[in-house]
Simulated scan of single mutants.
Amino acid sequence: MRIKKVDIYIIYLPLKEPFIISYDRYENMPVILVKIELQNGLIGWGEAVPDQHVTGETEHTVVEVLKNELGPLLIDLNPFQIELIHHKMNKKIWGNPSAKAAIDCALYDLMGKITNQPVYQLIGGQANEKLTAPQVISIKSPIEMSEDARRIVSEGFSNVKIKVGTDVETDIERIRAVRNAIPKEVKLRVDANQGWDRIGALTVIKNTKDCLVEWYEQPVLADDILSLQEIRSVSHAKIMIDEGVHSPQGLLNVIRNRSADMVNIKLMKAGGIYPSLAIANMAEVSGMPCQLGSMVESAIGTMAGAHLSIARRIIQTNELVGPFMFSRDVDTVVFEGDVLQFPDLPGLGVQVDEELVGELTEVHKTVE
């Protein structure tokens, strides 16, 4: 059970419509797939979705790091050596979390296939009854966003998240328009993606107090922990930190400063499932509920996040939205309404369409 070869692919998955958030606009999603092959021919799949604004990576830097720095470390190691492999990766190069996440997820896929178990059984077993996913609405005009919200609710979704973070007055209009378009029992979540300053965030929160917002996510810059603490101290709703936490050390700083009510864990920020478990453990000790977030991953990254999410009770919500947003994907993630269905398969449970991968591949590198 030794690692023989690592294949790395850049593909661009087409989105049904542009994905617009406070700091960028995406016409398609750059995805780096990692295929790790053992000497016996068994294959595990992982994925990186970098974001230069969050992880400090692009698809091209991820490929170079995987090809020249991280991939060679894996050859002849056992995929169950997850602790050692993360140690070697962190010692070899600082940061680059989505590159490390791609390797981590492929290793867990292999571990599940070797033991003939779904990944969640390897990290605690099923702790949550089900995973209910929201729909996410990109930044548009208030009217367009309200129309999207009506459609989403009509399709059976009970959770709506909206992207904001431009000018304060228009963001207030967006929140009000969406709230007025959906029933009170439908949960509304607001994500500014670092788009406001402290005064702007306080203004929006104060002026949308009657909009029944469940939480406001990352209202200010990622490292502005003190402003976040001030906002939380006067907010009527919960404050979630996302871009401001990449590691247990980062979360510890947030806990010490009492800067957030919730933390959004993302595999691509943390470096995969293994380090995300450490963040969840720290959050659990401090009594801080978690969300399992998304960087708009394909079926591979989505299912990796789903396995982690269903295995930890402290992860109370998720944002596994990638499958809703792509017009083509490497596999089909099945939902019944807004509830994710786990396939009865070992590993991540993903059967990658390698023909589609070949069709969409822009760059292919191999390490052996």
Rank of each mutant, 00 (worst) to 15 (best):
Asp210Ala: 07
Cys211Gly: 02
Cys211Phe: 02
Cys211His: 02
Gln218Cys: 09
Pro219Trp: 01
Pro219Gln: 05
Pro219Glu: 07
Pro219Ala: 04
Pro219Thr: 06
Val220Leu: 01
Leu221Ala: 14
Leu221Ile: 12
Ala222Thr: 04
Asp224Tyr: 10
Asp224Gln: 10
Ile225Pro: 00
Ile225Gln: 03
Leu226Trp: 10
Ser227Pro: 04
Leu228Glu: 08
Gln229Arg: 13
Gln229Tyr: 07
Ile231Phe: 04
Arg232Gly: 06
Val234Asp: 13
Val234Phe: 08
Lys238Arg: 14
Ile239Ala: 13
Ile239Ser: 07
Ile241Glu: 06
Ile241Val: 12
Ile241Met: 05
Glu243Ile: 08
Gly244Tyr: 06
Gly244Cys: 09
Val245Phe: 00
Ser247Trp: 10
Ser247Tyr: 10
Gln249Asp: 11
Gln249Cys: 05
Gly250Leu: 06
Leu251Ala: 12
Leu252Trp: 13
Leu252Met: 14
Val254Thr: 06
Arg256Pro: 08
Asn257Ser: 14
Arg258Gln: 15
Arg258Gly: 15
Arg258Cys: 14
Ala260His: 01
Ala260Cys: 15
Asp261Val: 02
Met262Thr: 11
Val263Ser: 01
Asn264Thr: 03
Asn264Ala: 01
Ile265Val: 15
Ile265Lys: 02
Lys266Tyr: 02
Leu267Val: 10
Leu267Trp: 00
Met268Ser: 06
Lys269Phe: 02
Lys269Met: 00
Lys269Asp: 00
Lys269Asn: 04
Ala270His: 07
Gly271Ala: 02
Ile273Gly: 05
Tyr274Gln: 04
Tyr274Arg: 00
Pro275Val: 07
Pro275Tyr: 11
Pro275Asn: 13
Ser276Ile: 03
Leu277Ala: 09
Ile279Asn: 05
Ile279Met: 02
Ala280Arg: 00
Met282Asn: 09
Met282Cys: 13
Val285Pro: 08
Gly287Val: 15
Gly287Met: 05
Pro289Thr: 10
Gln291Met: 12
Gln291Lys: 09
Gly293Ser: 07
Met295Lys: 07
Met295Tyr: 03
Glu297Met: 08
Ser298Tyr: 10
Ala299Lys: 10
Ala299Pro: 07
Ile300Trp: 01
Ile300Ser: 06
Ile300Val: 15
Thr302Gln: 07
Met303Pro: 07
Met303Leu: 11
Ala304Asn: 03
Ala304Tyr: 05
Ala304Gln: 04
Ala304Arg: 01
Gly305Ile: 05
Ala306Met: 00
Ala306Gly: 02
His307Ser: 04
Leu308Thr: 15
Leu308His: 08
Leu308Tyr: 09
Ile310Met: 09
Ala311Asn: 04
Ala311His: 01
Arg312Pro: 00
Ile314Cys: 06
Ile315Asp: 05
Ile315Leu: 04
Gln316Glu: 15
Gln316Lys: 11
Asn318Cys: 05
Glu319Arg: 08
Glu319Cys: 05
Leu320Cys: 06
Leu320Glu: 00
Leu320Gly: 00
Gly322His: 01
Gly322Trp: 06
Pro323Met: 14
Phe324Thr: 10
Phe324Arg: 12
Met325Thr: 10
Met325Asp: 11
Met325Gly: 10
Ser327Asp: 12
Ser327Cys: 13
Arg328Pro: 11
Arg328Cys: 11
Arg328Gly: 11
Val330Glu: 12
Thr332Ser: 13
Thr332Gln: 14
Thr332Val: 14
Val333Asp: 00
Val333Asn: 03
Val334Tyr: 02
Val334Gly: 01
Val334Trp: 03
Phe335Asp: 01
Phe335Gln: 05
